[in-house]
Design a protein around this nucleic acid. Structure first.
Length: 1040
RNA sequence: GGGCGAUUAGCUCAGUUGGCUAGAGCACCUCGUUUACACCGAGGGAGUCGGGGGUUCGAGUCCCUCAUCGCCCA
């Protein structure tokens, strides 16, 4: 039977086949197995706004690598997939599209219709994203896929909110938000961009008044870019050490345009002596810095705007004017009143809303907050006492610093897409009968305690545990509001509240609120009596659980490791820890691995908004998933961010045009779709971009990056080495491998294989994916392929040597495929299947039938902590590792290289046989004889003689190794002058090194202070070099 | 403004608690189709480790400073 593989690996066919097959066989499913260790990773839920990019690809590769590795180690490895509703981002995308395509705003269609549209969008993109994940080989338990707005997660969010509210951790407060007057919503900081625009810098003055409020002869001058906000000024601020003003601090001034009296205050953080007049107006309700100043100095905060950006009733005569026109009116009025001093042109940084492109207005509004003091402290404690460890460690500082501020968390968002805040409110004074009911309840249950102070209480005793309430101040003076918070699963209560005239809060929760409970929400919390439902199998055994417990939650929580990027350490990681502690009393994961970010060739972070994103599927299409994963893994270490220069591959001639910033920014702008002219074939082509879709039927470039050659070349190498092996497995029989029969190269490759397995295992445990990848690559390429396979070739042709050679070869490939599987799952599976056909029973110590799939085979290195009860035990162990053997082999390699160099030097054909004489100790000579046939095989050289008594043959080229000298007779070909020059060069180098070492060892400072092992090492190398120098000198002598 | 990090070969990156002659892949040059692989093999050239100062017997590695870049938080 001959079983030849195709000459090249076909990634797409293998990927399509195994994605389906693994899932069908249930290899990715993780169900609790009592007594077995688990390994749990919760995916950093991607937003359903669009497609995945290279950052996700890196993130996913790392998680899958860990999951496959742990699964092979015998753990029940759960990788929980899912997506995030991503409140503002998703709603923004859908709204923008609606506006562009239909000219509709959300107010035109209403809340329910908008939410329905967003659900449709979500369904489409969720499928796309989960598909992309499958394409990168993600071995998620797809049955458990969750979405932050699905029933399971919603329940958890709702319960958490209720719990927090009832514990008094959620409160209502004011906050300055970025208000978009066009969309009439608050927007997040990251949805706001700043641009320098042409503006004016006006200077005005306010008259200082006396105690009676009458004008004095003094004024205070200040400059501003936003005169209209003087309607909301509540102070003038100067620096406390500014001598121009110290005497008037505490005096009052009158705002000319509305007559209000405001104080002159001193605040070193707001006022700058060097800037302008040194005095500034303070408008706490309409500027972030002024707001902070207002809080520090207990100033009134006057909101002068309506939500549409027009002036409200606080503006007096200006009420109803647009914020743009009121500015001119104010300036004119100030001029008319004689308080205008001048104006100059200036570039002014202004904030704009990403979505509507309108100017942002800082705006004071009612928001919901989570009290962070004790929660933040608990999350800090978890890291400081090492219940959660962050890798690399330096990121603990980011985490700690942010939590240490303990700033209350604003959780309300003025959006329609998200978890609606489960609060119903009603003005107390409009419902006397309810008030009556309440008060009677308090007097019974709360010992007559007055609850108008904001204490939490249960308003409906028969629903204790499902509803809590608080009384707060309303907007109107003296008004009281009754706020009711209802737990999950109490629809009738909600109905009752509606009937009673309560109104549900229109806001939704910050997306991060639901993300924060992700690690336990996905496992079914708060349901503690049954397992969470599985997709596609309602009511099957999935929900069944013995003893009325949620076994899934018990088993998989807490998780093992969170894999994410550093920009969401505070937004997400910290909040998951505190929510986990709050709801579960346990941290959500033991480790956090922060991986590098991917940048473009200019050091910019890859992101949609920069137009430099790369779709991993483009790269997978070009290089194959395994190549992409292998390359990605090779750059995921713990040091720094990584640059990924990409180019556009011409669809006509395949020439690559490197991507520049110009390409990233090309937009149609109403004109034709941008295109690039190929520098080689001069034809035009279009290219993928976040700004536009290529025209129907146009020739579109593919995004490529030669960094992925690294992985692609490796896969090719692995494929072909295996192909060679498989071609030589004819007649393979399993059988015991007696260690006395093993040749030097067999022992060496097994020693190197075991060392590699051990190192890779250690490195993966430390999240050093880059090192692990390079280690396994170098072993495969530089040791297995370049040396071992070459050495095996003659043995495979020799009938008597063949059976053993085949067995060892099979063992090495078997273990190599396992080691590589987490890095390159598809190609290793393809090869594993083939290997099973040819050598289904195999092993070093024990002959066993191989696993049906490499995905469920045992990891080749067993550690004490892990055992794999379901499958065969690995053969590799420390007993195989021998440093002495490895260094002995190195000498063989050096000898072969030296002979090859002589061929090169004298231009001798590789086919020309040569003779070799080695002058060396008897021990070394014995070792040389043991591998003599390999000199012939690898460098077509016969070892004629080796030993101390070798006399150099005449007319030979020579070389000197550390503990042996070699001579290759060249029959008059030899050029004595060149030989001499070569040796003299080596001699000079040795002398230089020896001089360096001697100088060092002659330095009293060094021998006195350096540690003994360093000094010994120097002495040893010095001695070796001196010995080698003698050899070299002698060889030069011999030539003369 | 505060914090974290980076700057090493043409490009992309490694470089353990300071210790012998600073490494790899790609690119480049020379040679080579030997029955796995040209996505290959055998060789080779290439870096005053961002600048300056300091500590030390010894600095790519530690400290200070300057420059440039990235990220997070104000």
């Amino acid at each position: 039977m001959t079983s030849e593989l195709p000459k090249a690996y076909e990634p797409s066919a293998a990927q399509a086949r195994w994605v389906k097959e693994w899932e069908a066989r249930g290899y990715c499913d993780a169900d609790p197995i009592p007594g077995r260790e688990q390994h749990t990773i919760m995916i950093p839920l991607p937003n359903v706004t669009g497609a995945l990019h290279m950052g996700h690809c890196l993130n996913g590769t790392v998680q899958d690598l860990l999951t496959r590795w742990r699964r092979m180690q015998g753990r029940v490895a759960l990788w929980m997939p899912g997506t995030d509703h991503a409140g503002i981002a998703t709603q923004a995308v859908v709204e923008r599209r609606m506006l562009e395509e239909e000219g509709l705003t959300r107010h035109d269609i209403g809340r329910d219709a908008l939410v329905e549209r967003i659900w449709k969008w979500k369904d489409e993109y969720e499928v796309r994203i989960l598909n992309q994940l499958r394409q990168i080989g993600a071995s998620c338990d797809w049955r458990r896929t969750r979405f932050t707005l699905d029933d399971v997660c919603s329940k958890a969010v709702r319960r958490t909110f209720f719990k927090m509210f009832s514990d008094g951790l959620i409160f209502r407060g004011k906050r300055l938000v970025n208000w978009d007057p066009h969309l009439q919503t608050a927007v997040a900081d990251d949805e706001v961009y700043t641009e320098d625009v042409d503006g004016n810098f006006w200077t005005f003055n306010y008259p200082i008044v006396d105690d009676a409020g009458q004008p004095t002869d003094r004024v205070i001058r200040f400059s501003t870019t936003r005169p209209e906000t003087m309607l909301g000024d509540t102070a003038i601020c100067v620096h406390p050490t500014d001598e121009r003003y110290t005497d008037i601090i505490g005096r009052m001034v009158r705002i000319p345009v509305n007559g209000r009296l405001i104080p002159i205050i001193a605040d070193a953080l707001l006022a700058d002596k060097e800037l302008g007049t040194g005095a500034v107006k303070v408008t706490p309700a309409h500027d972030p810095n002024d707001y902070a100043c207002g809080l520090r100095n207990d100033l009134p905060m006057i909101n002068i705007l309506n939500s549409d950006g027009t002036i409200n009733e606080e503006g007096g005569e200006f009420e109803g004017m647009d914020r743009k026109t009121v500015r001119k009116a104010i300036v004119a009025k100030m001029e008319e009143l004689g308080h205008y001093e001048g104006v100059e042109d200036r570039k002014i940084p202004k904030k704009f809303s990403d979505r509507s492109k309108t100017e942002i207005e800082p705006y004071l509004s009612d928001q919901w907050f989570v009290k962070m003091d004790t929660l933040a402290q608990s999350a800090m404690d978890a890291v400081s006492d090492k219940r959660v460890k962050i890798f690399p460690q330096r990121f603990t500082k980011t985490y700690m610093d942010w939590l240490g501020e303990k700033r209350d968390w604003c959780i309300s968002r003025q959006l329609w897409w998200g978890h609606r805040i489960p609060i119903w409110s009603k003005k107390l004074d409009t419902s006397p009968e309810l008030m009556e009911k309440l008060l009677s309840y308090y007097s019974q249950k709360n010992d007559g305690r007055d609850v108008s102070d904001g204490s939490i209480f249960c308003p409906v005793p028969e629903h204790a545990g499902s509803i809590t309430a608080v009384i707060t101040d309303g907007i109107e003076p003296g008004e009281k509001l009754l706020l009711m918070c209802v737990a999950d699963g109490c629809e009738e209560l909600e109905q009752q509240l509606q009937t009673d005239g309560f109104v549900q809060d229109p806001d939704v929760l910050d997306t991060w609120f639901s993300s924060a409970v992700w690690p336990h929400a996905t496992l079914g919390w708060p349901n503690e009596t049954s397992n969470p439902p599985l997709a596609g199998s309602e009511n099957s055994q999935s929900e069944r659980s013995a003893g009325g417990k949620n076994e899934v939650l018990d088993y998989f929580y807490p998780g093992s490791v969170l894999v994410t990027s550093r920009d969401i350490i505070s937004l997400w990681v910290a909040r998951m820890v505190l929510m986990g502690l709050y709801n579960m009393k346990e941290v959500p994961f033991e480790h956090v691995y922060i991986h590098p970010s991917i940048q473009d060739s200019f050091g910019q972070r890859m992101s949609k908004s920069k137009g430099n994103g790369v779709d991993p599927l483009d790269l997978i299409d070009k290089y194959g998933t395994d190549a992409v994963r292998f390359t990605i893994a090779s750059i995921a270490g713990d040091t720094q961010d990584v640059r990924l220069p990409v180019g556009y591959e011409c669809p006509h001639c395949e020439a690559v045009t490197l991507q520049t910033i110009k390409h990233q920014n090309m937009k149609p702008d109403g004109g034709p779709t941008p295109s690039i002219t190929c520098k080689d074939c001069k034809k035009d082509f279009q290219f993928p971009s976040p700004w536009f879709k290529p025209d129907e039927g146009a020739a579109v470039a593919r995004i490529v990056s030669d960094r992925f050659d690294f992985g692609r070349n490796f896969c090719n190498k692995l494929w072909n080495a295996s192909r060679f092996a498989f071609m030589n497995l004819e007649g393979y029989t399993p059988g015991a491998i007696d260690s006395v029969d093993l040749k030097t190269e067999d022992q060496w490759i097994l020693s190197r294989l075991a060392t590699t397995a051990q190192q890779v295992t250690t490195m993966l445990g430390r999240y050093q994916f880059d090192k692990a990848t390079h280690t396994v690559r170098d072993f495969t390429w530089n040791e297995f392929c370049d040396w071992y396979v070459e050495m095996l070739k003659p043995r495979l042709k020799d009938e008597s040597a063949r059976p053993l050679a085949q067995r060892v070869l099979v063992v090495v490939i078997d273990n190599l495929l396992r080691l590589l599987h987490p890095f390159a799952p598809f190609i290793t599976e393809e090869l594993w299947q083939k290997l099973n056909e040819l050598a289904g029973v195999r092993g070093l110590n024990q002959q066993t039938a191989a696993a049906d799939s490499v995905m469920i085979a045992a990891w080749p290195w067993q550690q004490m902590e892990n055992s794999n009860p379901k499958s065969e035990i690995s053969d590799l162990s420390e007993a195989l590792i021998s440093a002495e053997l490895e260094s002995r082999f190195e000498r063989l390699q050096e000898t072969v290289v030296a002979v090859r160099n002589i061929r090169g030097q004298y231009k001798i054909s590789p086919k020309e046989p040569l003779k070799l004489f080695m002058k060396c100790s008897p021990e070394v000579a014995a070792q040389m004889y043991a591998v003599a046939d390999q000199f012939d095989n690898l460098s077509r050289t016969m070892l004629e003689a080796a030993g101390l008594d070798i006399t150099p043959p005449p007319g030979a080229a020579g070389f000197s190794l550390k503990d042996a000298d070699g001579y290759v007779p060249l029959d008059g070909l030899v050029d004595n002058t060149a030989e001499k020059a070569k040796l003299e060069k080596q001699q000079a180098e040795l002398q230089k090194q020896i001089a360096g070492s001697e100088q060092k060892l002659g330095n009293p400072g060094f021998v006195d202070k350096a540690p003994p092992h360093v000094i010994d090492a120097f002495r040893k190398t010095l001695a070796e070099r001196q010995a080698q120098l003698e050899s070299v000198a002698r060889m030069i002598e011999e030539l003369s």
